[in-house]
């Protein structure tokens, strides 16, 4: 008897670029066959012609399955990259066509494990400083002023940002540099203090992060003024200055353990980029709920550039900034207790 698919599989069914883009919340659970019928999408022909060939419809379906389960979207521009990753996995699992591989991702018992192997193949964990500059721009120019306006009552002149899944430290240091730059530029922020909490489950990563030594390649997107100010040469590499290091505290933390997360409280913003895509549906939902608990009212959750929380949580609302998006904590109003 076929096992039932997780709820998440059912929520993310959508119909490709030319069809209605509607989820199926509240839909009854579907069998594998039904699911496959619903994930079969219309080919967005107009977007593919520029590539000079018609797309394999199964590649697009694979894109949809990856989006439904891992929450990461590959644009049409990126479909050739997705195909490359899929073909590497096809060799490993002995699938002869994208159609056969699509079957592996939707029908076989180990379909979810295979999907995470495919996501792993996409190597989205690779990171560098200022990897998503528009996200940092939104933090500096929109989010920070909003937070400071909300908190502008002494003695609460303190902003806490959490980099969850910080790997080798590029993201939290980028956050610290951005905050430092804003603080120096804005006179009104002189009395404020900023703190970046950086966590990862991998102690090896954390050791490297604390050391703060990086190759020139990792610094390629750092604005020249910050390169000068925030790094010093160290052998043939570059080390983050003590001033930046002082803003960041590194701690081991497993996002999947509730007791481990519960001390991370009163956050104004959380950055968790390309981490949730490696979790299964229930772990994703639990983690998102923990982030919700960790955030202050109206706090922001930033996820990866192509990541979506659609169908994962109703406790956050999507907000748009120029060139980036984030999720804002929804506060339920309770007449007796105020904001909860």
């Amino acid at each position: 008897m076929p096992c039932r698919l997780r709820r998440r599989w059912l929520l993310r069914v959508s119909d490709g670029i030319d069809g209605p883009l509607l989820g199926s919340k509240g839909a009854p659970q579907l069998t594998h066959g039904e699911l496959r019928m619903r994930t079969e999408t219309a080919v967005p022909a107009e977007n593919w012609r520029r590539l000079g060939k018609a797309p394999d419809p199964y590649l697009q379906r694979i894109r949809d399955v990856v989006y439904q389960v891992a929450g990461i979207f590959q644009s049409d521009e990126n479909l050739p990259f997705l195909e490359e990753c899929a073909r590497k996995r096809m060799q490993a699992v002995d699938a002869n066509s994208l159609r056969q591989y699509y079957d592996r991702l939707t029908v076989r018992r180990d379909r979810e494990a295979e999907l995470h192997r495919l996501v792993g193949e996409m190597n989205l964990g690779e990171t560098c400083f200022f990897r998503n500059p528009l996200q940092l721009e939104a933090l500096r120019r929109v989010v920070l002023p909003a937070i400071c306006q909300d908190k502008n009552r002494p003695p609460c002149h303190h902003v806490r940002v959490w980099s969850a899944g910080c790997a080798t430290g590029e993201e939290p240091y980028s956050l610290a540099m951005s905050l430092m730059e804003t603080m120096e530029a804005e006179e009104t922020l002189q009395e404020w203090t900023f703190e970046v909490l950086a966590t990862d489950w991998n102690n090896g990563f954390l050791e490297k992060a604390k050391e703060g030594i990086y190759s020139l390649h990792a610094l390629r997107h750092v604005p020249p003024s910050l390169q000068q100010k925030c790094f010093r040469p160290c052998r043939d590499q570059f080390q983050v200055t003590d001033e930046v290091k002082a803003m960041v505290s590194f701690h081991p933390l497993n996002l999947l353990e509730e007791h481990s997360v519960s001390w991370a409280k009163d956050m104004d913003a959380i950055f968790c980029c390309n981490v949730l895509i490696h979790f299964d549906g229930s772990a994703q939902r639990q983690t998102i709920q923990r982030f919700h608990d960790s955030l202050l009212p109206n706090g922001y959750l930033f996820v990866g550039n192509s990541e979506s929380l659609y169908g994962v949580s109703d406790n956050f609302r999507l907000v748009h900034f120029p060139g980036s998006t984030a999720y804002r904590k929804v506060c339920l109003q309770s007449p007796a207790a105020g904001v909860i």
Partner: peptide, 17 residues
């Protein structure tokens, strides 16, 4: 039920074109 996140990602294709 509109998936605005996905629609936003899809629009980026238009931006380039």
């Amino acid at each position: 039920e509109f998936d605005l996140a996905r629609f936003t990602f899809e629009l980026d294709e238009y931006t380039l074109q």
